[in-house]
Design a protein around this nucleic acid. Structure first.
Lengths: 174, 174
DNA sequence: ATGAATGCAAAGGTTTTGCACCCCC
DNA sequence: GGGGGTGCAAAACCTTTGCATTCAT
């Protein structure tokens, strides 16, 4: 249980932490809370205990999760909150630009992630299911060019790479 | 019902046909049938009337469909075949490399398509739900470079652009 | 006080499973 | 003839909905 002196920590799949989603700071938490409150007020909706508890869980998880996983986490930490409320809250949080749908994981489940203005794509680690983000301007530009040339007007896109960590190269040959 | 003298025909969304999936020829149908038979024999499984009828429907549809859509088509044309058999057949056909999962549509449904060796990505038309294919070597190469640089070994990827036809540009402002 | 939000339970929709019967090899 | 396949119905899952009650404002 001794803490390594190096700053590197590892994910379940063996990758060093760093490029996966980060947990928000305390101040950021408060920013989100205010954002939620303003949104709710602006819409004539109510700021409830449950809505914030659910949002908090999502924010603290710092990453990518699916509806069912969230329901389970909520049940675990706040047994009083019913799953219907969780599903309803997911919608509200998406409307409030706190959450957004981001990708479909290897099992076909919709994964939600914290809303941020910047666009990024995803790499799903097939070893540990962790989801990493990447952004590459060349890919984005070339994609725009191709789509435009085919006479479509892009609304959004999903670019997900399912991959193994090189760190686990020896564990799987296919 | 007169046939236009121009070779151009149109999709529901107003796009000319051409880049969407094509229906297989009679000979190709027979090739798939033999492939299915060989696969089943090689696995000690059985070539049944139902399996071929389902495969045939998929092959003739020539395009992209989801499980539920297939169930409905099968019910319509072969009322004797139960939906459990359709679901079980989808698995068999995927294993036989006749079908493969290809993308998630705008409604979150898994879309299957005919297996082919060549890789391509998809554009989903948000006006008519038709699914188009594209392939761009620059994107593929750049993606490989990025993924490699991040120390992942790619297994597969899904790159889907959700877009409007330019042909319908006037119908929607967002 | 009042209207929105919640929890529960029931309903919906899709996919899987158990089992008796059937049919391909 | 025997083992895998099928159809049916039930079960399993996940998500949505209806409704009486509670709660934020």
């Amino acid at each position: 249980m001794s803490k390594s002196s190096t700053p590197i920590r590892f994910l379940p799949c063996g990758r060093p932490r760093g490029c996966e989603a980060k947990r928000p700071s305390e101040e950021l938490l408060e920013v989100w809370q205010n954002q939620l409150k303003s949104y709710l007020i602006s819409q004539g909706l109510k700021y409830t205990h449950q809505r914030w508890k659910i949002a908090e869980l999502i924010l603290m998880s710092g990453g990518h999760l699916d509806a069912q996983g969230l329901v389970e986490q909520v049940k675990k930490k706040h047994s009083g909150i019913g799953s219907a409320t969780v599903y309803r809250s997911i919608k509200v949080l998406c409307d409030a630009s706190i959450l957004k749908e981001s990708l479909t994981d290897a099992n076909g489940r919709v994964i939600y992630e914290l809303f941020d203005e910047g666009h990024h794509d995803h790499i799903v680690c097939l070893d540990c299911d962790e989801i990493f983000e990447f952004h590459d301007e060349k890919i984005e530009l070339q994609q725009s060019a191709v789509v435009k040339q085919l006479d479509f007007r892009e609304v959004r896109h999903r670019h997900v790479v399912y991959a193994h960590c090189s760190y686990r190269a020896e564990n799987s040959t296919q």
